[in-house]
Design a binder for these strands. Sequence first.
DNA 1: GCGACAG
DNA 2: ATCTTGTCGC
Length: 274
Amino acid sequence: MERDTCDAREASSSADIQNSWIEAQDSLKTRLVTEDDFRWQLPTTTTGTTTTTAIGGGECCFGVLKYVGGVDISFAKDDPSVACGTLVVLDLQTLEVVYDDYSVVTLHIPYVPGFLAFREAPILLQLLEKMRTCDHPFYPQMLMVDGNGILHPRGFGLACHLGVLANLPTIGIGTNLHHVDGLTQSTVRQLLETKGNLGEDIITLRGDSGRTWGAAMQSNPGALKPIYISVGHRISLATAVKIARMTCKYRIPEPIRQADIRSRDYLRKHQLAG
DNA sequence: GCGACAG
DNA sequence: ATCTTGTCGC
């Protein structure tokens, strides 16, 4: 049990770890699907009521999107390593929570920008797996994630990571812009302002390279601050935006908002926050 | 060298 | 992410 007085012989430096993380991201990224790849269909909303798209006049062959999942993690105020992962499932028609589950763990991996998944994905995957292995009838048909999808330095954020590993369609929702490919808050603000005069509340996030990274949407009529929507896995940006719109009761899409609120409540109620 | 950097 | 109550406003 010799006590080291210096870090010279550490097994791996943080640079080594980050390089291994980059390799893992690049490897998982080969399995990423950025187009619609699911068997359900979106409900089509008409004025006031929600109806399903008619197929052959009868019942839909593959079902309609009904169970939308949301995941988030909150942290204890005094100890940032104590985290509560939360999975909720909402009924898309009513936006009511029909399932929720929580897992409090101690995290040993720090948050490093660009590598959020290595800190947060394990606990969230565990919650999904628990639900899937018991064949829960409300297992989500798709998942909304608090964090970006392809809007990420290497095009593989938390939403992609979770989508690939859980083999679920996912959408990334960010509250703040992770600057990538020349995109900045000020450019987004300017573009939204211009679009706003034309009655639009959304812009496509196109970087200097010409690549489309996602969309910025002013989901709350009054507020200027947008949310950042990006493709996670097995879903197109157009579909992701539609679903984000359908689930926005307030600024943050309801599945994520509920996961966020309940996650924090859970820590409070269990007096794990201090 | 300096700033930026999802949660 | 978290520390934090009420408060101003639509």
